[in-house]
Amino acid sequence: MKEFKILAVIVALVGITYYGIEPYAHHIMHPEVSPADFSFKDLKNVDTKLAGNAANGKVLVEANCIACHAIDKAGYPAVMPNADAAASYGVVPPDLSSAGRIYDKNYLANFIFDPVTAMHLSGKYTPESGKAFPMPSYNWMTPQEIMDIVAFLQSVSPKVEGKEAHKATFEAACGRCHNMKYAGIEATTPKDNLKAYTGAVAPDLSQYIKSRGEHYLHSFINDPQLLLHGTSMPRVGLTEEAQEEVIAYMEETGDSKKAERESLGIWVLLYTFIFAILAYLWKRKIWSEVH
């Protein structure tokens, strides 16, 4: 029928245009990067097959880490207020209570061994730059000792689930740098300190689920350098599960009406469909008199 032909022509023209300005243009402007690697294969300094001894780890942590880090859940409070910590280190060292849960084991061990390499920030902390990363490398420790620390951190991490976990993971992993205004979260590091420390403004992440989308975040958080080459945002080394919790939190905050939108959408479409059918029947009736 003629009207279907016309419709087909319009659909084809609109379809070609749409393809050009949406999927195709997107593909050109945002080339695909290599897939996220949640086993952090590039880090190989510590043999993670060694079984760690948490009791020995506790001793090592007390001797080496708690001067800077709080581990609230294990009874080590912060040694100084955030403002002072930020002034001393540039950024507030994160509370390590959930470190054993949110960081990948291989990443965490290698991070302790050599933080700059693990975070993919070697480009920033070059010998020529004169900058020093605030946390020392523990490359003098034996792999066994490092795995003991990892075992200890894993043993103290509390089990959390659901929305509570989403928020907790975000705060532990991103909270020292990023605000989340729409959830009332302010970065623990004061803005000016952080700017001096990273050399860039860490943006408020309230709407980043919308502006960047899940697909981008999935690669970006796993390894920021792939998408923003030379950025000072560190690779944080989250497990896939923890990263999903962070993204879920970004969605709960930035797109809180998603569920409502999708369920209402179905009903509206159903209703409109009924309207369209009734309109068609009415049209048939009316036009049968004139044709």
């Binding site: 309109a279 068609y280 009415w282 049209k283 036009w287």
Partner: peptide
């Protein structure tokens, strides 16, 4: 308009 409503519906 009856025809338009039908087009409008879809």
């Amino acid at each position: 308009l009856s025809k338009d409503f039908f087009v409008l519906g879809f």
